[in-house]
Design a binder for these strands. Structure first.
Length: 409
DNA sequence: AAGCAAAGCTCTGCCACATATCGGC
DNA sequence: CCGCCGATATGTGGCAGAGCTTTGC
């Protein structure tokens, strides 16, 4: 094991010196090895971590490109830079523009590969999705899945995998142009989309392409805030947004609405798949959801578990095909094990990050609503209530002889 | 097993009004 | 391009009631 030392000076005056490699002590470090708690240059990293299978599995991240002194915690897509939590907060809280940069939690470097920091590795034991699961370790500033977290996941693996696998349909199908035309009701639309290989499955599953998916970035911003890294969020003008706070009073979520939509999409889809016995609660007419449910069975895009439980009499379609409208199988590309694992992981991530709390977008409106007079829960006109109160008050005064009305001027 | 009633649960609509948003000037 | 103004849209919380599910018989 390498011994971690603070080289490069740590006194206040030299705080911005780049840290040198803990191994050779001659070159600026570029990589931080979590297992060794060591800062290494590329050469030493390659040498050490190519030495054995065990060391090759060490989880490593790039060193912050700003301070060059701390492990990177986030990757800023706009700046194309890996930043530690501190630098990230500093840089991206400097101005509104910077604040809007899309940042994603840094991902560890797998094996002995040396590519750009944003490489997303899928599959294998080096896969790590930082800061998004809520199970990351927070010591030494890292957000990463620990072995414990992995174990936890493994415990849920069978159940989750079955569920996740049921959504592993087409590989990022073409966007459904009819999405907006089907119905204004999102739930309904999404059911259609999902049933017909539209994108909505990916809406839930496919978080990939971090930079291109603002929704996902939003979620990652949320995740960042859920973790110890507080990335300041502020509203620019208008009603102030009430931040949802964690236990430490840190603002957490500003995009929960999107997430809730995702959740409802998923929930609705699930319910639809589960023969939809609660039609009217899903926000669309019972007849519609019923028909959707029927179609879902006809299409045979049914979770495997559901298939096992409900329909053993029907022969299962050949793996990798979908039967549309009973009996016309379409060949769909089979997912590779890595793709599958990636999607399962993404699915689990989203599942864990579901937020069911109500999002308050406008604090002022909430405040007004709370102070607004009500009659049986409904908002009431102030005049009516005041009149009512006045009447009650006057009645009470009239019946109570101990009080007398004092004229006001 | 089927049918029924009661209890419990979940969801939706309603209300007023401050504020956000939009288009025109 | 900017600011102002008016019209319209939006969002907010608590309650009642409808409808669904569960339970017991």
């Amino acid at each position: 094991m390498l011994k971690k030392e603070n080289s490069g000076g740590l006194d206040g005056s030299s705080n911005y010196w780049a840290r040198v490699c803990d191994s050779c002590r001659s070159v600026t470090c570029t990589i931080y090895c979590q297992a060794d708690s060591a800062y290494l240059c590329a050469d030493c990293d390659a040498r050490i971590h190519a030495a054995s299978l065990v060391t090759s599995r060490h989880k490593r991240v790039w060193v912050c490109e700003a301070c060059e002194r701390a492990p990177a915690a986030f990757l800023c897509k706009a700046d194309a830079a890996s930043l530690c939590a501190s630098c990230d907060a500093d840089i991206h809280s400097a101005n509104p523009l910077a604040h809007r940069h899309h940042r994603i939690p840094i991902i560890t470097i797998p094996g002995t590969l040396y590519g750009p920091p944003a490489v997303e590795t899928v599959g294998g034991d080096s896969m790590m999705i930082s800061g998004s699961t809520g199970e990351g370790t927070e010591d030494d500033g890292f957000l990463s899945l620990t072995q414990d977290a992995d174990d936890t996941i493994i415990d849920e693996e069978d159940e989750d995998e079955d569920e996740a696998a049921s959504w592993l349909l087409l590989n990022h199908p073409v966007k459904n142009n009819n999405k907006n035309n089907v119905n204004n009701n999102n739930n309904q639309t999404n059911n259609y989309d999902m049933l017909f290989g539209g994108e909505v499955v990916d809406d839930y599953l496919d978080l990939a392409e971090y930079g291109g998916d603002s929704q996902f970035n939003d979620q990652y911003n949320v995740n960042q805030q859920q973790q110890q890294y507080f990335v300041p969020q502020m509203s620019y003008g208008g009603d102030s947004v009430v931040p949802v706070q964690d236990g430490q009073g840190k603002p957490l979520i500003f995009y929960q609405q999107q997430q809730q939509q995702q959740q409802s999409h998923h929930q609705n889809f699930q319910l639809g798949m589960e023969y939809d016995n609660s039609n009217t609660r899903l926000g669309y007419p019972a007849s519609m959801s019923h028909s959707v449910s029927v179609v879902s069975m006809d299409v045979s895009v049914v979770p495997e578990s559901a298939l096992c439980e409900t329909s053993n009499s029907q022969p299962r379609p050949q793996k990798g095909t979908i039967e549309l409208f009973s009996g016309h199988p379409i060949q769909i590309p089979l997912l590779t094990p890595m793709d599958r694992e990636a999607r399962v992981l993404r699915y689990r991530e989203k599942k864990k990050n579901r937020k069911f709390e109500k999002t308050i977008r406008y604090a002022s409106r909430k405040a007004y609503a709370e102070t607004r007079p009500r009659i049986k829960g409904r908002f009431a006109k102030r005049t009516d209530v005041e009149a009512e109160v006045d009447q009650m008050f006057s009645t009470q005064l009239m019946t109570d002889s101990s009080y007398r009305i004092v004229p006001s001027f």
